[in-house]
Design a protein around this nucleic acid. Structure first.
Lengths: 224, 224
DNA sequence: CGTTGCGTTGATCTCTATCAAAAAAGGTGG
DNA sequence: CCACCTTTTTTGATAGAGATCAACGCAACG
């Protein structure tokens, strides 16, 4: 991707949508494009955080590992998401690992460039803060789920949040593997599998190759 | 507290330490002082977030409640802490409850005043972002703990983080009740109590009226 | 086709919540 | 300072949710 392409890509990022051409160019000049294959690491826990990223296309997961190798996914990012923006303002270490779960393209923006940008563009500061707020809320919600809800409730919540209306039906095509969904929900594949068959047996959902269908949305909501 | 006292109090808050007198006055004019007793609510989950707070003295806890009344503490705040700053930039609802666990004094700063302040003082924006970063990290760490660590490990981590050196000894005086510590660690008082006696029986800690002493710091660290 | 990873199912085990009750620690008012 | 009441903390016994271990079907893929 040459510099003019980078410029175009940056213009389409919500975070920068209020910037003028000149400012975009400043970023474009120090930004670089990164392409990684499925399974490749973008950054790892504890590594120096001298840049953050914007995901152009593909999918990456952000996750922690325990001493004995268990994985907890914090977030699965998709096109348009800003990644690791939280890492660049206090300590300069990434707080988790990030790996591509699909072939992905990202824009890498160095910390310094961005801090300068904020000093001269308060509107960018407000946007990044809105993005922080959103992520804080998400984490609060995860903590709530992990300590106050059981697996079935977490699964129901996920299905409700990720459903798409298809005519009159409500479908949820898990864009990620069940193994990864299990990790995102704070459990293991076996338990997730049992939770799914539980919901199927109670008639709440049906699974096909198209995804998971919620049979009666109103009744489904009451499970939360 | 009259306006000049408020002015003085604000000057001592890290968040505003880089502001000139004029800017501090702007905030002081719209800020108000709040005094609440132990057990009194500061704000509640879902309530409109039109202000954030700075804790001058006392102690408050931020927590979520489940449908069946169980509590999960997200944070126990102490003097100097900025509270609910995350709530004012995207949706305008507080994402959790906040109640005083001691008689407390706070400064209440309306959202609008603060957003204006940021538009004209980028350095405040950077500080608030550093504060966001720190909180994001804290939540990531909590999620990690709840999904990848058992109660004993969480307790050990808490004791290590909150210890104070007293001569050659390492003490941790839980500033909060064990009931609240249990909720902070994502468990119940009974389980916390057992975890503590477990550590005592293994000789890792000893408890007195002065607090909890870590007997051998090096060995203690290996429990994590 | 064998191999490799994912998903499901079954059996078992472990950690933690829950329930119940006693013990300890604070107040409060006389 | 003491008797009384309330709240916190501890201890014991039990139950339950979910992790782990093991095995098998299945699809993808070299």
């Amino acid at each position: 991707m040459d510099n003019s392409n980078l410029h175009n890509a940056l213009q389409n990022v919500f975070l920068f949508s209020s910037l003028d051409d000149h400012s975009i160019n400043l970023i474009a000049n120090s930004a670089t494009r990164i392409d990684i294959n499925k399974g490749e690491l973008l950054f790892s826990d504890g590594e120096d955080a001298c840049a953050f990223f914007i995901l152009i296309n593909g999918m990456v997961k952000v996750y922690k590992l325990s001493n004995d190798g268990n994985e907890q996914i914090l977030h699965v990012h998709q096109s348009g998401d800003v990644i690791a923006e939280g890492a660049i303002f206090d300590k300069q270490k990434y707080p988790a690992n990030c790996i591509a779960i699909q072939q992905s393209s990202l824009i890498r923006i160095p910390k310094n460039t961005f801090v300068e940008m904020i000093m001269t563009n308060p509107s960018v500061a407000l946007k990044i803060m809105a993005s922080y707020s959103k992520r804080l809320r998400m984490f609060v919600s995860m903590i709530e789920d992990f300590t106050l809800k059981d697996i079935e409730q977490r699964l129901v919540k996920y299905l409700l949040k990720n459903r798409k209306k298809n005519g009159t039906a409500h479908f949820c095509d898990l864009r990620i593997s069940k193994k990864e969904l299990a990790s995102l929900l704070g459990t293991v594949p076996e338990t997730l599998s049992r939770a799914l068959t539980g919901l199927k047996n109670k008639g709440h959902i049906s699974e096909s190759d198209k995804g998971i269908e919620i049979n009666d949305l109103e009744k489904f909501r009451t499970l939360l």
